[in-house]
Amino acid sequence: MSHQVTAKTRPRSRGRRDGVRATLVAAVSTIVVFGALAAVVVNSPGWPAVQVSFLNGKVFLDSLPAIVRAFGVNVQLFLVAEALILVWALVVAVARSLPGPAFFPLRFLGTIYVDVFRALPGLLVIYILGFGIPGLGLPGVPIEPFFWAIVALVLLYGAYVSEVYRAGIESIHPSQEAAARALGLSRWQSLRFVIVPQAVRRVIPPLLNDFIGLQKDTVLVSYIGVVEIFRQSFIKQAGSFNFTPYLATALVFILVTLPLARLTDWLVARDRRRQARGAAL
């Protein structure tokens, strides 16, 4: 950006020349850096073997349809879990935000839940729920791995997302609650109509960020026997003795994550512009 600042103080033609030069420098340095990296990789002693086992065009094309189809399971996991997380985390966040001694047990339970599920590695929770609970053999308790995969993801991500919500609730200035209470709204009505709607709007960018993480972590449930994209690429790898299916899987994730990442950046930038304007939203 510095060249733009100086451009304003100099004659116009000089400024444009600076701009062209900056673009040129960026292009050259990009080519040099990536060229050097490629040279190191290609000239490494194991490159021929890696090329064969990771970059096989035929295996790639063979495995791609099955992998993309299996990704449908991840999309299902993601969409169902996300919808449930949005509701569950808000319930937890509101429970932890209720003031007064009467609500202490709720706040206490909420705090324990958030602490425990943020501390546990995700894979561990998925194992314990996916194998442990069906293993109890209780009548009426579902045994489908897909069900427990959803439960595990909701509990894991609900803990994080409830903290994001709570930060949003606490960021709303106390004068907003005072204004609501002064109009005769109860504590609950103030939360529901005044505080939470503003808080949710404010935390949409960090929420999207967490959902990028969730999208990726759907592969963890492959460990309890859900055949999704990662399990499918493992099957394809085992069948072809070639690791290219993993590369195809990586590509799928990059392609679906990029738009979400850009959307998040755009929302953050928009928020920053609004704050600079001084608008409360």
């Binding site: 004068s175 907003q176 005072a178 204004a179 609501a180 002064a182 005044v194 503003q198 709007r201 608008a279």
Partner: peptide, 14 residues
């Protein structure tokens, strides 16, 4: 039964 108006307006921005 009591209305109050604040220095900083405190309208609900949403």
């Amino acid at each position: 039964r009591i209305g109050i108006v604040f220095q900083a307006f405190n309208l609900f921005p949403h």
